[in-house]
Measured scan of single mutants.
Amino acid sequence: NITNLCPFDEVFNATRFASVYAWNRKRISNCVADYSVLYNLAPFFTFKCYGVSPTKLNDLCFTNVYADSFVIRGDEVRQIAPGQTGNIADYNYKLPDDFTGCVIAWNSNKLDSKVSGNYNYLYRLFRKSNLKPFERDISTEIYQAGNKPCNGVAGFNCYFPLRSYSFRPTYGVGHQPYRVVVLSFELLHAPATVCGPKKST
Rank of each mutant, 00 (worst) to 15 (best):
N1S: 12
N4D: 13
N4E: 13
N4R: 14
L5A: 14
P7G: 10
F8D: 04
D9W: 11
V11P: 04
F12L: 10
T15H: 11
R16H: 15
F17R: 03
Y21E: 02
Y21V: 07
W23K: 01
N24G: 09
N24H: 13
K26D: 07
S29R: 12
S29H: 14
D34T: 08
Y39K: 15
F45K: 15
T46V: 13
K48E: 09
K48N: 11
V52Y: 10
P54W: 15
T55D: 14
L57V: 07
F62E: 07
F62Q: 07
V65E: 02
Y66D: 08
S69D: 04
S69K: 04
G74C: 02
A81Q: 09
G83V: 06
G83W: 08
T85W: 09
G86H: 03
N92R: 02
N92Q: 02
K94P: 01
G101L: 03
G101V: 02
C102E: 01
V103D: 00
W106C: 04
N107K: 05
K110H: 12
L111E: 13
L111S: 08
S116I: 07
S116E: 15
S116W: 08
G117V: 03
N118I: 05
Y119M: 09
Y121L: 13
L122S: 13
R127L: 02
K128A: 12
S129L: 08
L131P: 00
F134K: 06
S139D: 09
T140Q: 07
T140K: 12
E141A: 11
I142T: 07
I142P: 06
Y143I: 03
Q144P: 06
P149D: 13
A154L: 08
C158H: 01
F160C: 07
F160Q: 13
P161W: 04
P169A: 05
V173A: 11
G174K: 06
G174V: 03
Q176H: 04
Q176D: 00
P177W: 02
R179I: 00
L183P: 00
S184F: 09
F185S: 06
F185T: 07
E186W: 11
L188W: 11
A190G: 15
P191S: 13
A192E: 13
G196V: 11
K198S: 14
K198Y: 13
S200I: 15
